[in-house]
Design a protein around this nucleic acid. Structure first.
Lengths: 243, 243
DNA sequence: CGCCAGGTTGATTTCGCTCAAGCAATGTGG
DNA sequence: CCACATTGCTTGAGCGAAATCAACCTGGCG
């Protein structure tokens, strides 16, 4: 539960650069000002925890910059990266709505800036402006779609196809176009986390990567990846889907 | 998009036996009466389709009796049973909210009664009563949790554990206590559907079943299953989780 | 310098998929 | 009513993918 501290500066959601991307875009100026009074803006270092599984909810988080990994742990210590979140995304609204504990953990994947919105402030706005509720509802609806698609993929695709799928997503989100058709990306995830996202062991990920290198589809060096021809990668993925 | 027909009778949501279980429990009497004007109640035979993937949404469905399977299909014809729904559950609200096409199909798993609520009527009520939106939101939130748990299971558990997990769920939902500690259940799903829920082939399900029989944990005869000792089944499942 | 976390690679084994055959129950047309 | 197809399920043999166990490498850090 974040507390206001010396390093935190006053926040104006009205002036926020993601104002028109985030869920709060449905609020009027005066409501945004009201929201701002309940906001604490804070920077997180790479790997730092935003909230942990089991914590009691204290409001919602709005990602302003960077990226966040949402992780689920089971009783035996298995860890799965369920979801990656980016600027404009809202975190923790499920436990907020069900007014319970966090069922997942969230951690910064790199230097990240996140605003925390106080429960009371949000409840108040939510009560008066049904549009915000509907906006959350739309977010929830599309998050269910995402989860279902991920479930479908994990149930029907082989490890290699799932890895290609993930790589493609990461390139879209984190990649840079270097020259015609070639992409460069600095992976935001460790091998272990890549593995946990597709439901396999890190050794298997290593082997998949080794094969992709041998086939000339991508060159890996630590977390740095160069994909010389995107269409080759896409074709590879398609061939798996087609079979 | 269901049309009113001779066999359909007028409906009063106010008198509905699931009134206090369903999402509509947050509505006042007069709102329920308004809702009723947009409702068509209909019976479905086992296996009958409620809506299909790709259909444009025409409102939401409220399950009154029976059970429904929610299925997702991919481009290659893979079919996965994502979710089972029961009386009091609302279906199709995601595509309603995102006002798009259905991304899943739904079919009756046995003789089932479902009410269809007209888009316009719901929109009207939703606009006036924010409580309904919040109720949908709570439903969506818990559905996300479910989907995440399912995803976690599919990524970390082996086929056998997933099958035991599913069997346990089905017994809880559809099982009958026959004598102290023993349960009987008539499975609502074919082997293929059982397989598609845990992401494996139907042959593998057959083999898992054969092993459970050999170990004396359950006796299968077609869709009829007898579990002599529930604690043995639970212990089996736990031992898999523990490893 | 040694330690450690993260990553790679190899050997072995297990699990589950594929292909294929066979069986029982049910339906259908002659 | 029977021959025949169809559907759902089971079983077997072979193979491939991936888990497991283990060794080893590498870069960062006290």
């Amino acid at each position: 539960m974040p507390e206001r501290r010396a390093s935190d500066s006053a926040v104006s959601c009205r002036l926020c650069h993601i104002r028109h991307i985030s869920d709060w875009k449905v609020l009027r100026d005066d409501e945004l000002d009201e929201l701002s009074t309940g906001v604490i803006r804070r920077e997180y270092a790479s790997g730092e925890t935003v909230y942990s599984i089991g914590d009691t909810n204290s409001g919602v988080y709005c990602i302003s910059g960077g990226s966040v990994g949402v992780r689920k742990l089971d009783e035996q210590g298995n860890s799965v990266l369920l979801h990656l979140a980016y600027p404009g995304d809202t975190l923790g609204y499920r436990s907020f709505l069900l007014s319970g504990e966090h069922k997942t953990s969230a951690e910064a994947l790199g230097p990240t800036v996140i605003c925390h919105m106080d429960s009371r402030t949000i409840s108040a706005i939510l009560e008066r402006n049904p549009e915000l509720g509907l906006q959350f509802l739309r977010r929830a609806a599309s998050e269910i779609d995402q989860a279902h698609t991920a479930l479908m993929n994990s149930l029907t695709l082989c490890n290699r196809a799932r890895f290609l799928h993930l790589l493609l997503f990461l390139i879209k989100r984190h990649g840079r176009l270097v020259e015609d058709g070639a992409r460069f990306i600095e992976l935001p995830l460790s091998r272990r986390d890549l593995a946990s996202m597709i439901g396999t062991r890190h050794e298997t990920v290593s082997r998949i990567i080794a094969r992709l290198e041998a086939e000339g589809i991508a060159r890996f060096s630590g977390r740095r990846v160069m994909v010389p021809r995107m269409d080759a990668l896409v074709a590879e993925l398609d061939s798996h889907l087609a079979n």
